Amino acid sequence: MKIGVLALQGAVAEHIRMLGLAGAEGVVIKRTEQLQDIDGIVIPGGESTTIGKLMRTYGFIDALREFSAQKKPIFGTCAGLIVVADRIAGQPEAHLQLMDITVARNAFGRQRESFETELAIDGIDEKVRAVFIRAPLIEEVGPGVQVLSTYNGQIVAAREGHLLVASFHPELTDDCRMHAYFLEMVKESR
């Protein structure tokens, strides 16, 4: 199983490492034509506005929409969650507009308010270590979206069909279960 990691900005190497630990081959994706060779893709954290601009510059908006239309799984973490969302609070336009959610950027505060916690994730037996860094929050979900985890009553992980998102950085721990969960989605989609 080959899983791409969009390598425009963010924690690319960390996601490649976690995909390997979870049992897949991680592939660095820098060109749209590489999308045809992979079974799923991770859109990592970083800065969502920058990632969105780079995606437009290098043709990834239409290419990833087509990838999603083929029901190939996409996993967005932190800024990647924002990129996948249909709506961004306070902004007139979102990026990929794939998942029926509204997100708030930097909802958990600035860099100095970063924190780690243990989260219960629907579909994973034991709690998962979650690292929140200038994390977004899912404010609203559409009827087809399954909430997978909350923190203090606020949605921090969700799934809609072949789309998976998390407000936190699962790649910054040694726990590969979120990546393994995503790999199960990829297996289901094949």
Rank of each mutant, 00 (worst) to 15 (best):
L8H: 09
A135G: 06
A135K: 02
A180L: 07
A24Y: 13
I82G: 00
V147P: 00
A7Y: 07
E140I: 10
L119Y: 12
T50K: 03
G109N: 04
L172M: 11
M18R: 07
N106F: 03
S167G: 10
S149Q: 05
E126L: 13
G46F: 07
G109M: 04
I61N: 02
E93N: 12
E116A: 09
R177H: 12
V145N: 10
V84Y: 00
L8E: 04
A13E: 15
V5H: 03
A85Y: 14
P44E: 04
R65Q: 15
T57G: 02
D122R: 10
S189I: 07
A7T: 10
L183C: 07
V5C: 04
D122K: 15
G45L: 06
M1H: 10
V84G: 00
V42W: 02
A166F: 04
A107C: 08
L183G: 03
I29A: 03
P170Q: 08
E93W: 05
F132S: 01
A180T: 12
T173N: 01
R56H: 12
R105P: 06
D125W: 00
T32K: 14
A166P: 04
I3K: 00
A13P: 00
L164C: 08
I101E: 02
I3Q: 06
P170F: 02
V131K: 08
L119M: 08
L137W: 00
L137P: 01
I41G: 05
L96K: 06
R112H: 04
A85T: 09
H95N: 11
S149W: 07
R129S: 14
G90S: 13
G123D: 13
L21N: 05
I51T: 11
G52T: 13
D122S: 14
H169F: 04
H169A: 05
G142T: 09
V28P: 01
V156Y: 11
G161R: 14
H179A: 04
F115T: 10
Y181Q: 09
I121N: 06
Q36R: 15
T77E: 04
F108P: 09
K30N: 09
R105L: 07
H179E: 11
T117N: 12
R65C: 01
D62I: 02
T117C: 12
P92F: 09
L8I: 10
F67V: 08
M185E: 13
Q70A: 14
G4S: 12
S68K: 08
T150D: 06
T150C: 10
A158P: 11
E126K: 15
